[in-house]
């Protein structure tokens, strides 16, 4: 590998509810694999995608692996920007309190624990999308 590391901005856009389809889990796995390449990764949750982050998921009754705890590992994979679209939350009668508390440790601030989730409007999210090198939608 050359010494010149090219860091690109990656945004993963999550638009589907978990469990009903395979998209949410597939996206999460791609994010974790991609994180090994030390790129500038952020995640967005929009539409039914916001349901991926709900607290208290318990899949014992449906016999499917509960992958919601894995979102809490994203901070350890240096993923510090998790955008949740405000309008999508509101349309579903949800607030930030209904979602898991996701954090990361800020290397530049003596490893202080900080909130990873940022509530943004659809317009703001549109701007964030335009700033990316690569946008992957699931």
């Amino acid at each position: 590998m050359s010494d010149e590391q090219v860091t690109k901005k990656f945004l993963y856009v999550n638009r589907k509810a978990p469990y009903g389809t395979i998209y949410a889990l597939e996206s999460l796995e791609v994010v974790l694999i991609g994180a090994a390449f030390e790129q500038d990764v952020s995640l967005a949750f929009i539409g039914d995608g916001v349901y991926q982050l709900t607290k208290g998921q318990d899949t014992k009754g449906i016999g499917v692996k509960n992958f919601s705890p894995t979102y809490r590992a994203l901070g350890e994979y240096d993923i510090q920007k998790i955008y949740v679209e405000k309008e999508s939350l509101e349309a579903r009668g949800l607030t930030l309190d209904d979602l898991q508390h996701l954090v990361y440790e800020d290397e530049d601030d003596d490893w202080a624990e900080k909130d990873a989730i940022k509530l943004v409007s659809a317009k703001e999210l549109g701007e964030i999308m335009e700033q990316q090198d690569v946008v992957l939608s699931f």
């Binding site: 349901y51 709900t54 208290g56 998921q57 014992k60 009754g61 449906i62």
Partner: peptide, 11 residues
């Protein structure tokens, strides 16, 4: 269906 509500954290 309750198991589906529980799985999705919306019970």
């Amino acid at each position: 269906l309750q198991p589906d509500l529980e799985a999705r954290g919306v019970k």
